[in-house]
Amino acid sequence: MSDVPASPASEFRDGLVELLPAMVAAAPIALLYGAVATGKGLSPLEVTLSSALIFAGGAQLAAIELWTVPVPIAALVLSTFLINARYILMSASLAPKVAHLSFGGRLIGFHVLADENWALAERRAASRRITAAYFFGSGAVFWVNWVAWSWAGTVLGPLLGDPRRFGADFAFTAIFIGLVAGFVTTSRAGLVVVASAAAATAAHLALGSPWHVLAGAFAGMAAAVLAWRPDAEGETA
């Protein structure tokens, strides 16, 4: 930490350097999202618009997995809300640490808040004041990165042909497995995953899509509530 106030340019540069690994990791996921969404019948404009306005990787991948014709709007919105409900807590945690920035800026800045840049901002806030150049700069770059690679996927997808042929449809499943593994740090979290998988599969066989998402969500939450013990306070399930 230095006593000299950092210049906006160096703050912006700091943000980029911290964000670069997350940008590189997001690129192939966005490419795949664009390619598979195109395969499901979405136009390049629709794909690009969805990445720009929704800006939530996990929820967008889930939406494309659930996407059928006619479009199940209620199921898509519900799934998006459930997957993104964590942003309520994440935003609430970060909000006091950026309260000195302009309100209009925060209204836009929080739209481009994702897991990666949220974690980076929280880490930075622990040691120094978050500046506008850092927060809005890295947010804008992360947003452009996600939207641009999603669009690139709509161009690349049709050139590659049927995603199933080279297993691209299963890449979604693999991404989700990787994401879930990141959440499973305790045996209680493992129980959540097992309960959700069992309930979702049963609901899918009995009722079909999209009921499996709701069944899995509630089974997982029920497992977490039942497995909760007072001694586990502070342990994230």
Binding site: L66, T173, F183, V192, T201
Partner: peptide, 14 residues
């Protein structure tokens, strides 16, 4: 806390 892993699991379980 259980919602994100539960929903992500539910989507791919079938």
């Amino acid at each position: 806390d259980a919602i994100p892993p539960a929903v992500l699991t539910a989507v791919i379980a079938p």
